[in-house]
Design a protein around this nucleic acid. Structure first.
Lengths: 239, 239
DNA sequence: TGCACAAAAATCGTATACAATCCGTCATTG
DNA sequence: CAATGACGGATTGTATACGATTTTTGTGCA
């Protein structure tokens, strides 16, 4: 169950330089979570995940622990790992935290904004538009989170960026559970408005737009009626 | 090297209910870090740590990965784990983040403050006083961080509390590296002032005191001249 | 039929064996 | 004598074996 797959692509046994094997598993699972391919509560059996990615349980275990630390999976002793399923309260707290941190980061990004960075953001929003147009809701949501992450990267504050990474990951689960609106157009509008502010290097405007954007997201949640849409694991994984 | 030590204290093979073996290692190392028993940059050999705690490398490795995720240790591929050594920039960012988050948490704590919680805080500050009086600088610093953590617990916001845990851990390393002042009396004064505000349930005052307290700490750092005081590992560990 | 209990299967926790990698040392050579 | 390259020891990366715990299944009895 460990020497399956990867027939030839490992000419250099360790790829580029970073990215150990467990990081690849982490990335694969994260991706699936971001795109809502696997639902909260899904069991992640060590053997099963290991077989899918062609690695031993040692690697899988390491990856699951990493994900547990980012609160994306929950590990129950002697019972296994599950995709986390944030409580309504946790959902509320996550967006409260985003409401405090992200506006601050938006101002920092506006102050440090370069033309290149602007161009990157612009391309990102276009991708977002495209995905939404095609109707790929999972990908659109994933990209929407990516927009916030890119802003954090531009701000260049590693500590805040780390927090935002964590918060956005958890937001993905929260949205899977508690988001009912069909349209994500408000999302698109806010992002567009943010772009305008960034183009003008208007830090105050960026901060305010970000704040209200996150309040919007927060109030778009219906914390009393969670969705549920379990899927098969094997189908969900492999990019 | 794995069946050494622990001759009798494991009547129930798994202690209370939680606290797996690797958590104990994490706690032991954290404690040593908080009390400045091990200096930033110290190498943490898997075998060595395993022997000290009487566990196998599997456990140690798991613990080190957990600590790496909290940024307390750095893992370099094929080279090993080291106590993290925050850069001046990172130090600056950590205190900037604390300056944003902790004042907000202080207001939340003030609003939810109960008489019991107040009593707990009071006892904590007395411990702090005692440690400082005896001259146990390591313990005093550790307790000082604990004060901030207790406030976060009282605020009852798990997301913020998690962030603050992380930030305070890293602050401990930062202080070990960049703190030069001998006295920690300003620390004590600020904590006392905070207590007063909490007693009055004065949220606005608590927020403001917390903000200026963190600015104080931040400005007490000398980011251009790091300290260094390496110690032996075996001596530092075991409580 | 339904419940209780026991045996079996599945899954996780931990230790250990082996492979891969890195670092220091020493010999060789220009 | 300095620089370079190869060897050996030490340390980490990964896989796998074994024991412990949980979950499920199957059977007997009320």
């Amino acid at each position: 169950m460990n020497k399956v797959l990867r027939p030839s692509q490992d000419a250099p046994p360790n790829t580029t330089g970073l990215a150990s094997r467990s990081d690849l598993v982490v990335a694969g699972l994260q991706r699936a979570i971001f795109e809502h391919k696997i639902a909260p509560g899904t069991k992640l059996s060590e053997d099963e995940v290991g077989e899918i990615f062609g690695v031993s349980r040692t690697i899988v275990r390491s990856a699951l622990q990493a994900l547990a630390h980012s609160q994306l999976v929950t590990i129950e002793k002697n019972r296994g790992a599950f995709i986390a399923s944030p409580s309504p309260r946790e959902a509320h707290e996550v967006f409260e935290a985003r409401g405090l941190i992200e506006p601050r980061v938006a101002t920092m990004a506006a102050k440090r904004m370069t033309d290149e960075a602007l161009e990157t953001l612009r391309m990102h929003t276009e991708e977002e538009h495209a995905a939404m147009h095609v109707g790929d809701k999972g990908k659109a949501l994933s990209l929407s989170g990516g927009f916030h992450l890119k802003i954090a990267d531009i701000a260049g504050h590693d500590v805040f960026t780390g927090f935002i990474h964590s918060l956005i990951s958890r937001s993905s689960l929260i949205i899977a559970l508690y988001w009912h609106r069909a349209d994500t157009t408000c999302e698109s509008h806010s992002h567009h408005a943010l772009m305008k502010a960034f183009e003008r290097r208007d830090a105050a405007a960026a901060e305010e737009i970000m704040r209200s954007h996150i309040v919007d997201l927060h109030s778009g949640l219906n914390l009393s009626s969670p969705n549920n849409a379990p899927l098969s694991l094997a189908d969900a994984l492999r990019p």
